[in-house]
């Protein structure tokens, strides 16, 4: 009876004969692979098409006129080059500053949340930290604009920077706190036991162990800042443009090949950043690993 059981199951199961071949692998569902491939095509097709057409020699975006780098040249030296350069400088400097500030704030918050023990208002504090992700971007944009105008703050570089710091905090916070949760508290205790003050325990033990999390938090915050259009568009005021607002302004008049070249450049920057962040996260999943 015992020996016969599996045979019986296979031959007289719900679908006789259907599953006799090979092992019944409960992880395999027919059709899931094609859907996954479809998913990847949908995700990548638009990007690849734009990348390809950015190398199009023809000024028309519909006709393929052979390979050329002329639109890249146009981005750097063409009529709009100055505008793009200013926008790129604004974007990068705002991203660098906002990512730095939000990473410092998020690191401090992560130590307080993860290492602060149980305290009243912990969930409220967590909710506050995640608020910038929860509130729809357009609402954040409106609220920030109203706030700045109500307190009479002139819109411009500074207002963009402040807004970016706020919405970058949760993105920096998540990888940093995840990393910190994986570090046993006993290392700080060992440092304290060996005569380290709090500051020294942080500087010599906790900070180096948290470093991979802090780095990926910084990189994510940087990308998120570079990515933002809606909030920037509301609080930028007149005259200050970032790359996304400049591109948005340009595509309102139709997609031109130089915009595709610019997009491809930005895309490449994002991909490099994410890859680095991914590799860093992977190499440092375990403290000491």
């Amino acid at each position: 009876m015992v020996g016969a059981a599996p045979v019986r199951h296979k031959s007289t199961g719900a679908h006789p004969g259907a599953e006799v071949t090979a092992g019944h692998d409960v992880r395999r569902y027919p059709g899931f692979l094609p859907v996954t491939i479809l998913c990847l095509i949908v995700l990548y097709a638009p990007l690849i098409v734009v990348m390809v057409y950015s190398f199009n020699d023809s000024p028309s975006i519909t006709i393929w006129g052979g390979f050329s780098l002329r639109w890249y040249e146009d981005v750097f030296f063409g009529l709009e080059a100055g505008k793009f350069k200013d926008a790129a400088w604004n974007s990068l400097s705002i991203a660098a500053m906002a990512a730095t500030a939000s990473t410092v704030i998020a690191t401090s918050a992560a130590v307080g949340m993860v290492r602060g023990g149980a305290f009243r208002g912990k969930s409220a504090s967590f909710a506050l930290l995640s608020l910038p992700i929860m509130v729809p971007e357009i609402v954040t944009a409106v609220a920030t604009l109203i706030f700045f105008s109500a307190i009479g703050f002139t819109l411009g570089f500074a207002s963009i920077l402040v807004a970016h710091v706020v919405f970058c905090i949760p993105f920096a916070y998540l990888p940093i706190s995840a990393r910190l949760q994986g570090i046993e508290g006993v290392y700080e205790e060992a440092a304290r036991d060996l005569y380290a003050s709090r500051a020294e325990a942080f500087r010599h033990v906790l900070l180096p162990l948290m470093a991979p999390g802090i780095l990926s938090g910084f990189l994510l915050a940087f990308i998120i800042s570079l990515d933002d259009f809606i909030i920037t568009n509301f609080v930028k005021g007149a005259g200050v443009e970032t790359l996304p607002t400049a591109i948005f302004g340009a595509v309102k008049q139709g997609i031109k090949p130089n915009i595709m070249a610019l997009s491809t450049l930005m895309l490449a920057v994002s991909v490099v950043f994410v890859t680095v962040s991914w590799l860093v996260g992977r190499s440092g999943t375990k403290p000491g690993g």
Partner: peptide
Amino acid sequence: GTWAPLRGWLLAPSWLVIGVFLL
């Protein structure tokens, strides 16, 4: 814990920034 006494100070910057500029 090593950091519990400083909890308030550690969390204050995030509370302040998000509280003032978003909430």
